[in-house]
Design a protein around this nucleic acid. Structure first.
Lengths: 163, 163
DNA sequence: TTCAAATATGTTACATTATAACGTATTTTG
DNA sequence: CAAAATACGTTATAATGTAACATATTTGAA
């Protein structure tokens, strides 16, 4: 059993994740749970090699494939997202906090990256998704998955900048 | 002078690019012109190291920074875009083919990546941009730059798949 | 239950993408 | 022309990601 212990809120979310996995016949193993925990405990998007460092506190010989395989699994389950512009990963608030027992389906997700504080906010805005689908439909393109990432300033950082 | 010679259409677009640069006081040097030419001649998004190989046909000792510096310049000028999901670069049709003499301003740009044929189509759809701005405004986030990339099937590849 | 198949993880090596740091050349400007 | 700014050359290395194969664990069917 992994020695790492996480904050209570994180454990709750991990339990949610475990239920979601069970619900579609996949297993949130100790290793995967631990990697997801490390992602969730980070205040901001985490890189794969930061996660690897975190893992090594517990499992001395961990290597890159250990982390990447866990990340691939978590991405497929929709439990985390990859922020492409940052090559980093965040927990999916939609899946882990929401009342959505129907995970797995890739949902619309948009990410707001604040260049001031580094925080990333996840949106799940249907208007954006529909605008994208509308724009692509009439040229015959079928969207399977979309990446929407906006860089800018969050409310708090903008206020600081204006002051 | 660089020995590489490009198709006529490409030269035309390079001339456009040169005018755009001149219009805001930057220089499309031989090197930058050559890198842009290589991007434009590629049927699909090109990686930095593919460009490096292309460069080396002409300049034997070229090294990664040679290419990356040229790419940084071209990105800043809005002459190319980076497709984050592919770590690859495409010419900006908006800037190079359009009647838009007012380059430099980052415009709304969305990319449709066909997983069938690898082609990437650039959209410049205001509906998507506005949906994004609407969704972010009411939470106080100010968008400075956005990345929108959709993966799916273009009309041609979808027809093949359905057949 | 017991073995075969499927799944998950360990381990080594390497591929790909990107940048730091410093020196030289070229261009621009006073 | 000389100084400053800009662009480029060169070496080394950082950061991100994967291939390939071995071992362990779990699952499922006989």
């Amino acid at each position: 059993m992994a020695g790492t212990s996480f904050a209570e809120r994180t454990e709750t979310r991990l339990d949610n994740a475990e239920r979601l996995c069970a619900a579609h016949g996949s297993r949130l193993t100790d290793l995967r749970r631990q990697v997801l925990g490390l992602v969730l405990e980070a205040a901001r998007p985490v890189g794969a090699y930061d996660l690897l460092d975190g893992l090594r506190a517990d499992k001395k010989g961990a290597a890159p494939p250990t982390v990447y395989r866990a990340l691939d699994f978590l991405l497929e389950e929709g439990l985390i997202h990859k922020i492409e512009r940052l090559s980093a990963f965040v927990g999916c608030t939609h899946a882990l906090d929401g009342s959505h027992t129907e995970a797995g389906h890739p949902h619309a997700a948009q990410f707001l990256i604040c260049t001031g504080c580094g925080q990333v906010t996840e949106l799940d805005d249907h208007g954006i998704l529909h605008a994208l689908i509308d724009a692509t439909r009439h040229i015959g393109f079928t969207v399977r998955h979309s990446t929407v990432e906006a860089e800018g300033l969050c409310a708090a950082c903008r206020d600081v900048a204006t002051a």
